[in-house]
């Protein structure tokens, strides 16, 4: 488990979990710091990522651009899971406007998200 200033990271059953801290305003600087922590934590391995963005309250376009490019390094697939209506919409906006080839989706149920990641974590 790694507890950073902006996110908590841990690995469980070959899946990397990222949980953003509460009340987080996501800027490019924040995104860069999260990426640095993630790459160091992964120790050169590629992972399928389960991301809980519930703590994010807003994100600027530079941060989203960065996450969609540099932020996908050493990631096989990403599943977003959040119960918050605000974060569901923020994540949908991100996926709609920054569509990449990386398999990604937003899920209402944790179990569906994990199933999606399992199919991409081999």
């Amino acid at each position: 488990m790694f507890e950073g200033e902006y996110a908590k990271l841990w690995i469980e059953d070959t899946i990397l979990f990222i949980e953003y801290r509460s009340h987080l305003v996501l800027t490019k600087q924040t995104a860069m710091e999260v990426l640095r922590s993630r790459l160091a934590f992964q120790r050169n391995q590629e992972y399928a990522v389960f991301c809980d963005p519930s703590g994010i309250v807003s994100a600027d376009t530079d941060a989203l651009d960065y996450l969609s490019r540099e932020g996908t390094l050493l990631i096989k697939a990403v599943a977003f899971y959040t119960p918050s209506p605000l974060n569901i919409l923020l994540t949908e906006f991100f996926l709609e406007t920054h569509r990449r080839r990386l398999p990604a989706g937003i899920f209402k149920h944790k179990i569906q998200a994990l199933k999606f990641l399992k199919s991409h974590s081999q």
């Binding site: 309250v57 807003s58 994100a59 600027d60 376009t61 989203l64 918050s84 209506p85 605000l86 974060n87 569901i88 919409l89 923020l90 906006f93």
Partner: peptide
């Protein structure tokens, strides 16, 4: 922005990001 996490706050966040 406000501290709400509801659908209305999502709509406001989306409009802000779209304008940006």
């Amino acid at each position: 922005r406000s501290s709400h996490h509801d659908e209305l706050e999502g709509l406001i966040a989306l409009l802000n990001m779209t304008a940006e």
